[in-house]
C-alpha cells in the first residue's frame, strides 16, 4: 500500500452556528486522483478553503504526508506542498503567459533570494515544457489578460504544474468551458495523474467519468459516500441526495 498523501481528519468549520463542513474525514493516497462530488452548498469549496488555509477550521486536523498543516497561513501551506486552482481562474493579468509560469517557477519564496536576474537553463526548459503541455506556446509572450477563458484556466493549471506541489487541489477546472476545451483539460489532468496527488471538485459528469478513479460525495457538509464511479452510481443514498432517480447520465 502506498503512503497517504493527504489526511483530512474530523474537519469542521462553524460559521456563526452554521456548520458548512461537519466532521469530514478523507484520506487520499499518494498519486491518487480523487473527485469531490456534491450539490451546491455541500461544502466542497469550503473544504478546499480549509485544506489550503483560506478559511480556518474550528475542529479537526489536516496533514500533508506527516506534516500537520492545520490552520497554517496560506503561503506556508503552499510551501508544504499543496497547490490550488481556483474556481474563478486567477492568473497575473498584466504579466505575460511566460512570466506567469516563471513566477510559479521561483522555488525559493524569500525576497532576498529572488533579488537576481533571469532563470537557469533547467528552469527555462521546465517553463517551455509546461507551455507545450498546456498548448500555450504561441501565446507565451501575450499578456494573460488577453487569453480566452479556457486558455486562462490552462495557464493556471500550468502554473500549478510548474509549482510542482505534492497535492493539487482543483476547484471546478472545467467551469465555463466548451466540450472541446473540457476534453483538453481532461487530457492535461490525466497527464498529471500518478505524478501528483489530485483532489478535484467537479460537476460535469462526463468529465468525472473521464478522469475519476475514486469519488467522495459530500452532502450538507458531511461525507455521504465514497467509492468508484460504479459504486457511487449504484449507491441509493447518493441517488436520493444528489443524482435524482435517473443516476449519472
Amino acid at each position: 500500500m502506498s503512503a497517504i498523501a493527504l489526511t483530512i481528519d474530523g474537519l469542521s468549520v462553524d460559521f456563526g452556528g452554521f456548520r458548512a463542513v461537519n466532521n469530514v474525514s478523507i484520506t487520499v493516497f499518494d498519486g491518487e486522483l480523487r473527485v469531490l462530488l456534491g450539490a451546491n452548498g455541500a461544502g466542497k469549496t469550503t473544504l478546499m478553503d480549509l485544506v489550503s488555509g483560506k478559511t480556518h477550521s474550528t475542529q479537526g486536523k489536516v496533514f500533508v504526508y506527516d506534516t500537520d498543516i492545520t490552520n497554517w497561513p496560506e503561503h506556508r501551506i503552499a510551501r508544504a506542498g499543496i497547490g490550488r486552482k481556483f474556481q474563478i481562474p486567477s492568473v497575473f493579468r498584466d504579466l505575460t503567459v511566460r512570466q506567469n509560469l516563471q513566477v510559479a517557477n521561483c522555488r525559493n519564496p524569500s525576497v532576498l533570494a529572488n533579488l537576481r536576474f533571469g532563470f537557469s537553463r533547467a528552469e527555462a526548459s521546465r517553463v517551455d515544457d509546461v507551455l507545450a503541455l498546456t498548448g500555450l506556446e504561441a501565446e507565451h509572450g501575450m499578456m494573460a489578460a488577453y487569453l480566452s477563458h479556457g486558455q486562462t484556466q490552462w495557464l493556471e493549471l500550468g502554473m500549478l504544474i510548474v509549482q510542482d506541489p505534492k497535492v493539487v487541489l482543483l476547484d471546478e477546472p472545467t467551469a465555463g468551458m466548451t466540450q472541446a476545451e473540457t476534453r483538453k483539460t481532461a487530457q492535461i489532468i490525466n497527464n498529471l495523474k500518478g505524478r501528483h496527488t489530485i483532489l478535484v471538485v467537479e460537476h460535469d459528469m462526463g468529465f468525472v467519468r473521464e478522469i475519476a478513479e475514486r469519488i467522495t460525495v459530500l452532502h450538507l457538509g458531511e461525507v455521504l459516500a465514497e467509492g468508484s464511479v460504479e459504486d457511487i452510481e449504484r449507491n441509493p443514498k447518493v441517488r436520493e441526495a444528489y443524482l435524482g432517480s435517473k443516476g449519472i447520465s
Binding site: S52, E74, H75, R76, A78, R79, G83, R84, F86, S90, V91, F92, R93, D94, L95, Q99, N100, Q102, V103, A104, C106, P109, N114, E156, M159, Q163
Partner: peptide, 18 residues
C-alpha cells in the same frame, strides 16, 4: 516580477507560496 504578480492577484501569489 513577483511583486508585479502580487499587484495583479495577491491571493494567487500567496497560494504559490510567497
Amino acid at each position: 516580477m513577483i511583486l508585479q504578480a502580487i499587484r495583479d492577484d495577491h491571493v494567487r501569489a500567496r497560494y504559490l507560496g510567497f
